[in-house]
């Protein structure tokens, strides 16, 4: 299928994206936190993947490759958004059983992390990627990813503490 898409079959390409769309949307959402931006992210990733598809050497890495494109896009997008305004969390469709305010605090805390720390958290905790897979995806040694994850959680703790104190 991937090879067919690489040979220029756009319906094959569509199916490939379709298979991945839920995962991609959720990752986009965990970065961007609202529907409009996440949909835009999907469009942009589809576009980037389409024109770059021929550069993909190993078809078996297609799914990871898509995620990588998405993460790069989201990181750039966040940088851009931070420069403008901090977006409000789109909470209208969230379930009532979750404590939305807490969740918003977590997501905002994630936003304040270094992008690479944010990425390892999103991949590991929101998308259930193993450390090995994350390392492969980010093209870094496993040790580095472990260090990042540790640093990410430490930073997250600090941020949440501060938030907690401020909220008191």
């Amino acid at each position: 299928m991937i090879i067919r898409a690489q040979e220029g079959d756009s319906s094959a390409f569509y199916l490939l994206i379709d298979q991945n769309k839920e995962k991609l949307y959720r990752i986009a959402y965990s970065y961007l936190k609202n529907e409009v931006d996440s949909l835009e992210a999907i469009q942009e990733v589809t576009y980037r993947a389409y024109i770059k598809l021929k550069n993909l050497r190993e078809p078996k890495f297609f799914d990871t490759w898509l995620v990588k494109i998405l993460i790069n896009y989201c990181n750039d997008e966040l940088k851009r958004l931070k420069r403008t305004i901090l977006k409000e969390l789109d909470i209208s469709q969230a379930s009532e059983s979750t404590n939305i305010v807490d969740r918003q605090i977590i997501l905002e805390a994630l936003d304040r992390l270094d992008p690479k720390y944010q990425t390892v958290i999103i991949l590991k905790y929101f998308n259930d990627l193993t450390i090995e897979d994350t390392a492969k995806l980010l093209n870094r040694p496993i040790g580095t990813v472990k260090t990042w994850l540790n640093k990410a959680l430490t930073d997250l703790r600090k941020t949440l503490k501060k938030e907690g104190e401020a909220n008191v």
Binding site: D18, K21, R26, E35, Q43, Y47, A94, S95, D102
Partner: peptide
């Protein structure tokens, strides 16, 4: 906390419009 946040994200519905966005991404790519 992260686990709970994950649940929230998982509960986020995937908008039906997503297919249109995929289409327009492909068209732009073409």
């Amino acid at each position: 906390e992260l686990e709970k946040t994950k649940k929230l994200i998982e509960q986020t519905p995937i908008p039906e419009k997503i297919d249109q966005y995929i289409d327009s991404g492909i068209n732009k790519g073409k």
